[in-house]
Design a protein around this nucleic acid. Structure first.
Lengths: 216, 216
DNA sequence: TAGATTGTTAATCGATTAACAATC
DNA sequence: TAGATTGTTAATCGATTAACAATC
């Protein structure tokens, strides 16, 4: 089947739809129209219908969308019905926080291992998972069919580690290092550049204040 | 001066420009053309020139852009030349990691206080800053001219805390809670929804694998 | 002056919104 | 059947890319 390419903009909205639908589901809501969801989420009903129709019809004329069904289908689109083995590379503050904070199992991600270069951390248990030496990472990925590596290490190391992970067949890298990774196209990369995000916030403050100043 | 509205797309690219320019600056590069930067960053030269020209001419025909000057100007646009007082609300794993991991001072953000509801954490020092009881937050914000609050608390509390922060005049919220905050328009919000990001990664894996499967 | 490269206008492309026929 | 609401086409809007005149 010749799939039409789904735009990045649409994909970025899917997790938010999922969140709202999950809440509606928990509240026991059975069906919802694009109009109602529009009011709730502050996006146009038209966009909602266009977005969902990228993946085929999930709704029914005159009725709307079944919340439970829509929730399940969007989950499938996002691959949340699949199990993914995941390791965290870098057991510092951020790595530990991610391990403890993310509800990996809830979304089908199986926390499988944790690695660091610092010998003081070896054997330490983070969320029940002992920290292993970095040298063991490559073999571990191969032997345990690890799909995803979370990179919570400094940017210098990140480039090298990403290359090594690519070599041993990692499928995807969730990159918290402040650097653009160059990996083969078969390795998917999602960046979380926290400082970029904070700068955007700083910009918003700046802009708002200059707007107010100009109005006077 | 009637400022033209700058698009969100442009703003989102500024921190990345800043990062590359910072690196060039550190390497001692004095000038760069849109063409060279294009090769480095993997965006079109045309887009680079359009982006910069939103803010007036930073370059010079026949020469290109002065790296140091451009770096400084983009920093100013992002408001990084201003000092911002910042508190972290929620001293759990994520809050502590953010406190330790982010180089706040480097970008003009002054880490001023940390709050939690858990009495066991009161007085504990995180990056030299003692954790204070949540009840003190509102007065603290007022007395210390706090500009930014980082929300690293569960989503139920986040909504209430955001409302309280808005009441006492916070300028901006860096929101790590998995919920959309409803705050007055004078309060800027930047969301970091980590689980959304991980879902996008999951989607990319899914899509790549189905592409490969379809090719066979 | 000649060459290089910006600033800026025009063309293209893509995403969002509006409208409405199809249909439950 | 009548009313509601989707699925989908068309219109609009905005962002990106191409082209080139201006100018250092």
């Amino acid at each position: 089947m010749a799939e039409k390419e789904i735009s990045q903009a649409v994909i970025s909205r899917l997790p938010r739809y999922l969140r709202y639908l999950g809440e509606l589901k928990d509240e026991g809501v059975e069906r919802i129209s694009s109009q109602e969801l529009s009011g709730l989420m502050n996006v146009t009903a038209s966009q909602i219908r266009q977005d969902f129709n990228n993946f085929g019809g999930f709704g029914q004329q005159g009725y709307g969308y079944n919340v439970e069904y829509l929730y399940t289908e969007i989950g499938k689109i996002l691959g949340l019905d699949k199990k993914h083995h995941l390791i965290i590379v870098g057991a510092g503050n951020l790595g530990q926080a991610i391990a403890n904070y993310m509800n990996f199992e809830r979304r089908g991600f199986i926390f499988t291992g944790m690695f660091d270069i610092n010998p003081e951390l070896f054997g330490k248990k983070i969320r029940g998972m002992e920290v292993r030496p970095m040298e063991e990472m490559a073999d571990f990925v191969k032997q345990n069919n690890v799909d995803i590596a979370v990179l919570t290490i400094p940017k210098g190391e990140a480039v090298l580690v990403a290359a090594k992970l690519s070599d041993v067949g990692i499928k995807a890298i969730w990159n918290f290092a402040h650097v653009d990774l160059a990996v083969p196209k078969e390795v998917q990369v999602e960046n979380v550049h926290l400082s970029d995000s904070l700068m955007r916030l700083s910009y918003m403050i700046e802009r708002y204040e200059s707007e107010v100043a100009n109005k006077e």
